[in-house]
Amino acid sequence: MTKAMLIDTTRCIGCRSCQVACKSWNELPAEKTAFSETGSNPRHLDASNFTRVLFLESPAPGGAVRWSFVKRQCMHCLEPACASACPVGALEKLATGPVVYRDDRCIGCRYCMLACPFQIPKYQWSARVPYVRKCDFCADRQALAKKPACVETCPGEALRFGERDQLLAEAHRRMKASPGPYAPEVYGERTAGGTSMLYLTAVPFQALGLHHRGFRTDLGETAVGQASQAWMSGVPWVALAVGALSTGLYHLNQRRHRVKEQEEKGD
C-alpha cells in the first residue's frame, strides 16, 4: 500500500511542464533564469525548486548524439537517511509513500542535508526564519486521492503514479517487451534500500555519469540510515559498560585508600 512513481526517461520530451506544475501547486516564487550550457534550467534544485529535468547528451551508435532527460526530485526512500539523521523527527516516511517534513519540529541543524545520499533537502538561506524545503510527493494531493502535480501534467506519459509493486512489475514488463530502448536496470528498485521513485533509462545510470548530480550508482542496496541505527543500538551497552566499570573502580579505589589509612593508624 505504498505509492510510487515510475519515471520512464525514454518517454520524456524535456518540456519541463512538471517543473511548472510543481511550482504552481507548491506556490513557489518564479525567478529569473539564465541559459546554461546543457539546457537544464534552473541550474540547481533549491528551496524554491523541488524538481528539475537534467538535459544530458551522450554518444549514440553511428556518431549521433542521444538526449536523455532525467527528472530529479526527492526519491522518497523506503528507509530515508534524512529521517534517521534528524534529531527531532521532523522528517518522516509515511506508510503511504511520501517523505514529509514538519516545519514545527525542525531546529534548523541541517544534518538531513548532509545525510541525504541524493542531495535533496535544501535550505531557505535568505529567510530570517529558515526551513528545509524539498519535494513531498504532493502528500497533500495524495490525501485528496489526487495524483502528484507533476504526474498530472506530464503530456508524454513519462511519469506514472501508482502502487510501488505494480509499477515495478510494469517497469520490468516494459524492459522485457522492448529490450532495445531500455538499459536493463530500474534505478530505485534496490538503490540505497529502495526508493519510491523508479527510473527507466536508455543508457545505464553509470554511463550517464550523474555521480555528483544526485544519482549515485555506488550506494549499494542497504539504506544509508542503517549506519545510524546500528550505531545507536550499541550506544546503551557501551554506556552501561563504561558506567558500571567506572562506578566499580571508583568504589574499589576509595575502599583501598580507607583500608590503607586504617592500617597506617593501626601500626
Binding site: A83, C86, V88, G89, M232
Partner: peptide
C-alpha cells in the same frame, strides 16, 4: 528551538 530534542525524540538519530 534548541530544546526540541528534549521533548521530540528520534532514538534512531545519532545527533
Amino acid at each position: 528551538r534548541l530544546w526540541h530534542p528534549l521533548v521530540m525524540w528520534n532514538p534512531r538519530s545519532v545527533l
